[in-house]
Design a protein around this nucleic acid. Sequence first.
RNA 1: GCCCGGAUGGUGGAAUUGGUAGACACGUCAGACUUAAAAUCUGAUGACCAAACGGUCGUGCGGGUUCAAGUCCCGCUCCGGGUACCA
Length: 932
Amino acid sequence: MNYDFLRIEQDWQEAWENGLKYKVEEVEGKPKFYILDMFPYPSGAGLHVGHPLGYIASDVIARYKRHKGFNVLHPMGFDSFGLPAEQYAIQTGQHPALTTKANTNRYRDQMKKIGFSFDWSREIMTSDPSYYKWTQWIFGRLFQAWFDRDAGKARPLSDLVTAFETNGNFSVNPACDDNWFKGLDMSLFPHFGENFAGTFTATDWNSFNKAQKSVLLMQFRLAYLADSEVNWCPELGTVLANDELKDGLSVRGGHPVEKKKMRQWMMRITAYSERLLSGLDDVNWTDSIKEAQKNWIGRSEGVVVKFRTSTGKSLKVFTTRPETIYGVSFIVLAPEHELVRELTTEANHQVVEQYLIVSGRKSERERQGDKEVTGVALGGSVLHPLTGNEIPVYIAEYVLIGYGTGAIMAVPAGDERDWKFAKHFNIEIPAIFDGFDTDLGVCSDDTAILKGSKDLNGKSKKDAITAAIEILESSGHGEKRVNYRLRDAVFSRQRYWGEPFPICYVDDIPQLIEDKLVNLPSVDAYLPTADGEPPLARAAKEDWPVFKGDRMETNTMPGWAGSSWYFLRFMDPHNSEAFCDRSKSDYWGQVDLYVGGAEHTTGHLLYSRFWTKFLNDMDLIGFDEPFKTMINQGMILGRSSFVYRVKGTSKFVSFEKRKEYQVQRLHVDVNLVDNDKLDLEGFKAWREEYADAVFILGDDGTYTCGHEVEKMSKSKYNVQTPDELVEKYGADTLRCYEMFLGPLTQSKPWDTQGISGVHNFLRKFVRLVSSAEDKDASVEELRIVHKTIEKVSSDLERHAFNTVVSAMMIAVNELGGLKESCSNSALKDLVILLSPYAPHLAEELWKEVGGEEFVIDAVWPEADSQYLVADEVTYPVSFNGKVRFKLTLPADTPADEVETIARLDENTLKHMDGREIHKVIVVPGRIINIVG
RNA sequence: GCCCGGAUGGUGGAAUUGGUAGACACGUCAGACUUAAAAUCUGAUGACCAAACGGUCGUGCGGGUUCAAGUCCCGCUCCGGGUACCA
């Protein structure tokens, strides 16, 4: 039998499809396994060889679990809203839906050719109205919800309204901005007056009109509108992301960019900070990802300390080092801090304004990149709460408005940045650490003893913190607080190709449009309007499939909206009554294994955890972490090939002789190179300029190329699409090879050099089966097969995909080396082991060895322990750790007997050469070590 | 700077709890088959010394623990990724 992979793969893909082999339904009583890949954005370039890496791994596990009797859910879909399609639409005028359709078709075809066991009947696309209808619906739930801090969970907004109606906001504790009441438009609430501190009574509430209630409720919704600063580029008429900026100019076109406050939809993810942190204990992810999320959430415990300003107001600072309170010699505010103008004296007015202009022009990223000490004194001061000393106030870029209270108490003796700042502005550095001259440098010793700190003198950091908190709290100057670095997420995009919001405005009050899908309207161009409104503002009233109120919301949702809940939709993809029927999500539950790149750590993985927790709070699903176990595959790098052109000629010299000439190194398409040997004719035909190339060959008569590992990229001609490899070697070879490359989680170079070895292995397998006979299996065969069953099963359980291929190679080599031909019965088990990796070939061989039905449904074999134990053990005998000779003994020889035999062996006597044996260590079954 | 990974032959990698370092594969070399090539098969292949038996060295570097270290501990170097004036 020949290995005709093209025919085999086509036949079986058809057979599976005709038999609906990968269609899956809930089956009561059968254990489920939900295995999911991070779904791709369908770009115009098609799938490259790096994409399938994770998909193959998950497919191997999906098929393995199927063999093990699980009901396996293994779906695939597309994250199909996104910028590239919109960019293309701007250039060509083609509707992004069309581009997206073409691209998804290509991706699907490519994936089908690789033989994945995806249930394509469950395919979803985030840009499909039947899908984003539910993204809008979930947004609606978030809009109609608040987070009850006392209960630690989200609740329907109606509960909050009831609370307000009965007791104002006195007896509820909703998650909100600390200063929510400061941002209110007070003209709406004339009777609150200037000193409004954020409390209102039931009588107040009940007297409010619709607009007033709407504004107040907006402060507590989980999806809410707020003014947020964006990078506005007037020239382009659009908002730019941080990566689209450089040196205060837009990357595209180099136009000036300014900060602008814009009314934007936000997601109150910060309400979930604590649960997002503690939930990490319940998932089986790598420590590095958990660590990154922890850092991103950035929990820190500290104290908010109040300082009284010279103008009589209270200035709050957040500190994690309250014990250094006596070392405070100045205060620094973020330039945007609300008290800046108030604390600026006449004399300093001009320099302060100057500083505000300069820092205001910089992007956040630039400000943070600048290591130079900058800042100015305001002239105003505050009083130290414990000493009563007058303390000057500065502004500086290194203090961020968005973190803590936007103000710090500077302790130059204990903080590097404060120290530099003090030195730069010649500010006093109070000495508060015993035995440290902090005029010379910062004290970073945690065991340092405090001095010059009144009640705290003589204490070390840990004790002093407790004492300082006690002092500050009891005197009313401070209170403990847990602070998070995590910020609420901006949920608006000024783009066309995203989910429209199910929101309209009536008298400027946002209204949720329920029970109606808000479809994207058609527009004449995908650009912002002349006055900077998002593209959707181009749609006239009649262009909107659904139009309500005075006007529709014209922002769209960000890329992460659809991907935050797609794993739920796969469970019930065609439901038009609900986002996902509860009985389905109860059956399938959490994703048991999630496979994808680590680059989504602080985006997708955090947002989908947030939405999952929310949906769980609303009792819409029964679990509160989406992804139980996760594997992150590594990056694939490209192996580029080079030719060497003799300068100024069209002569090309082979790698080994390149140093004899003056040469230019040029990238050459890797498809023209096989094992570093250049296809000369192919090269000439590649490009016109090489048509008359002349080659200076190596001594072996071939042209050898140079090579280097670098990022896989079109411009480096090192991109490999799976298509070519599937054509040349077959999908089964590609699947095995991608797994054989190395550990899945490590990033590694893509190099097709080794692919022939894997292809060879499959051919050897074919030959082995062709020559097999119907007869009883020999003990030798069974030993090999059962050893392999054991190895393959345990490797799959620990997700070691690469060593499985090696183990099967070894089995094939060993079986092929036996004197007798193999028996079909022994090979049957081996074919099942092969099927997760090379499913097409396994089906074909399954027929050969007399298997019934489809191999993909065969029961995974169990290793029989009687074939795993060897009769004999070959002990390496080492002397002081160095192996000198081998000793073969019956496997059941007791340890003391092994020792006696080893001691008396003539080789031992020779090696000891008359020296005395001090000690003999026998590790049964493993090693003997003689010390002497 | 901080956090997280990683470093093993010419190459990708294996060694799962401390127990024969280099499995498996590529490449290279030699051989068989062949008019020849391809395909296939067999053998060799970490470095150094040796005709051979065998020996010495060897898992980024320097120390340490241990009968025994790629694996554990301490201190570094380099590479990759993430993140950043976070109070």
